[in-house]
């Protein structure tokens, strides 16, 4: 059993990672065919994982409803709305215009989603007022940069001489340099993690405690 749980998945991961790395450097039709095949597999795996997600959603919320944990009513609403949306989808045969699915999307999902996002503006204003302090030289620099960038984003600020060009310089030079450094760091970290997975040192993706 240990072979099936550990050695076989490790061997599959090793084979496919190494094969796909090599494939990138081999522009042969066979190699391209192999890439095409693995991409189709990847897409299928993602769709299957969506089904797993639905299963997990049901499992988690049904448990909350059964045990009646605090806030279990929200779980009931979640599952009911999920069921209704699925029914609306079947009724509309996917996406027929004017059907219940489109109605749900336009008059329920869309306004609720936009409302949630628009609340951010209020919280950002409140957080900026309470937390954005010039406590040190670095914090002052950050604050001044934020003010320049914010001003340049609106016609009122862009009309102030120098704001537009200063903002363009900040975005084009220090920002680009810092982002590149960050990306190199992340890329090196990703390579290190990939190597750990290839050689079976990193096994957390197999689940369990190992």
């Amino acid at each position: 059993m240990l072979h099936l749980k550990r050695t076989v998945p490790l061997a599959i991961a090793f084979f496919f990672v190494v094969a796909l790395i090599l494939q990138y450097f081999v522009p042969h039709p066979l190699s391209e065919k192999f890439l095409g095949m693995t991409q189709k597999w990847a897409i299928i795996v993602v769709y299957v994982s969506l089904l797993l997600g639905v299963g997990s959603l049901f499992q988690s919320h049904l448990r909350k409803i059964r045990v009646q944990t605090p806030g279990w009513g929200y779980s009931l609403v979640t599952l009911s709305v999920f069921g209704l949306t699925v029914l609306a989808g079947f009724h509309s045969r996917g996406n027929s215009p004017g059907g219940p699915l489109q109605w749900t999307y336009e008059f329920a999902y869309s306004p609720m989603s936009a409302t949630m996002f628009s609340l951010l503006g209020f919280f950002i204003a409140s957080a900026a007022f309470r937390a954005f302090r010039a406590r040190s030289v670095e914090a002052t620099l950050l604050l001044a940069t934020a003010v320049v960038i914010m001003l340049a984003q609106v016609p009122l600020g862009a009309a102030i001489p120098g704001v537009g060009s200063l903002s363009a310089w900040i975005l084009g030079v220090p920002l680009t340099a810092a982002k590149r450094a960050l990306m190199f760091g992340v890329a090196l970290g990703s390579i290190a993690t990939a190597l750990r997975i290839i050689f079976g040192i990193e096994r957390s993706y197999l689940g369990g405690t190992e």
């Binding site: 503006g121 204003a125 900026a128 003010v147 001003l151 984003q153 009122l156």
Partner: peptide
């Protein structure tokens, strides 16, 4: 207006 308001709040 909101950008200027946030700057003034800061």
């Amino acid at each position: 207006a909101i950008h200027v308001t946030i700057i003034l709040l800061v």
